[in-house]
Simulated scan of single mutants.
Amino acid sequence: MHVVSARERLLTAALDLFAEHGVSGTSLQMIADRLGVTKAAVYHQFQSKDDIVLAVIDPALNRLGPIADEAEAQRGNAARREQVLAGVVDLVVGFRKVSATLSFDPVVMRLVRAHPALRNLQRIRRLLGGTAPDPGSRVRMAVIAGGLMMAGADPAVTGLDDEDFRDHLLAAGRRILKG
């Protein structure tokens, strides 16, 4: 049985409030009120709202390095590409709610642009074959990067269970990468 910590409850409440009001529209007092605690109790866990946002998105961003590591351990470009595609798809599926809630938020975009884990996105692009200079490769990378990452935020796929969603994302990614 998993016991939910105070930190996990706070992050869940914050994510729910971010979904309702956006990051900028959510105050620390709102988070405290949702939890039935004082604002001081929120500050005991996190020093700022940015720290809360980072705690929500860090697990996803921190998966980028291991995805690239696992892919780089494969033999051959095709195996590397398949491994990184599967890893990114699993990431999208696993963090659907975070993606749907925070993908377009300007505060989140600012924090993500400064996040050290972003250097791993370049590794992932390289593993997918995105360093080729030709226009077709560059467009395929843009579609993969934007399309797969944003798929979790699309209301059209909300009703799909994780397994179906994963299977269809993998199939779409493979078709795009074929060119």
Results as ranks from 00 to 15, higher is better:
68 A>S: 00
68 A>Y: 02
68 A>N: 00
68 A>G: 03
68 A>F: 04
69 D>C: 08
70 E>D: 13
71 A>V: 07
71 A>K: 08
72 E>A: 14
73 A>S: 05
74 Q>M: 10
74 Q>T: 01
75 R>Y: 13
75 R>N: 13
75 R>C: 12
75 R>I: 15
76 G>W: 03
76 G>D: 00
77 N>A: 15
77 N>L: 11
78 A>G: 04
78 A>R: 15
79 A>L: 07
81 R>H: 09
81 R>G: 09
81 R>K: 12
82 E>Q: 13
82 E>A: 15
83 Q>T: 15
84 V>Q: 04
84 V>M: 04
84 V>S: 09
85 L>P: 09
86 A>N: 07
87 G>K: 08
88 V>D: 01
90 D>S: 09
90 D>T: 05
91 L>N: 11
92 V>S: 00
93 V>H: 07
94 G>R: 00
94 G>V: 04
95 F>N: 13
95 F>G: 02
98 V>Q: 14
98 V>F: 01
98 V>K: 04
98 V>R: 14
99 S>H: 09
100 A>M: 07
100 A>F: 00
101 T>D: 07
102 L>T: 02
103 S>G: 09
103 S>H: 15
103 S>C: 12
103 S>Y: 15
105 D>N: 10
106 P>C: 03
107 V>M: 12
107 V>K: 09
108 V>T: 13
109 M>L: 11
111 L>I: 05
112 V>K: 11
112 V>W: 13
114 A>R: 06
114 A>D: 00
115 H>L: 06
115 H>P: 00
115 H>G: 03
116 P>Q: 07
118 L>T: 07
118 L>Y: 04
120 N>A: 09
120 N>P: 05
120 N>R: 09
121 L>M: 13
122 Q>M: 09
122 Q>A: 12
122 Q>N: 14
123 R>E: 08
123 R>D: 01
123 R>Y: 02
126 R>N: 14
126 R>L: 12
126 R>F: 10
127 L>E: 07
128 L>Y: 02
129 G>Q: 02
129 G>Y: 06
129 G>T: 05
130 G>C: 06
130 G>Y: 01
131 T>H: 13
132 A>F: 01
133 P>N: 14
133 P>D: 13
134 D>S: 06
134 D>R: 08
134 D>M: 04
135 P>M: 08
135 P>A: 15
135 P>C: 08
135 P>I: 10
136 G>T: 15
137 S>C: 11
138 R>Y: 03
138 R>D: 01
138 R>M: 12
139 V>M: 15
139 V>C: 12
141 M>R: 00
143 V>P: 01
144 I>N: 04
144 I>R: 07
145 A>F: 09
146 G>D: 05
146 G>R: 04
148 L>Y: 10
149 M>Q: 04
151 A>P: 02
151 A>F: 02
151 A>S: 14
152 G>S: 06
152 G>D: 06
153 A>M: 05
153 A>I: 03
154 D>F: 08
154 D>I: 03
154 D>L: 08
155 P>Q: 05
155 P>M: 09
155 P>I: 04
155 P>E: 08
158 T>W: 11
158 T>V: 12
159 G>I: 01
160 L>T: 00
161 D>V: 07
161 D>A: 05
162 D>G: 07
163 E>P: 01
163 E>C: 06
164 D>A: 14
164 D>S: 14
164 D>G: 11
164 D>M: 13
165 F>M: 03
165 F>A: 07
165 F>I: 01
166 R>P: 05
168 H>Q: 15
170 L>D: 02
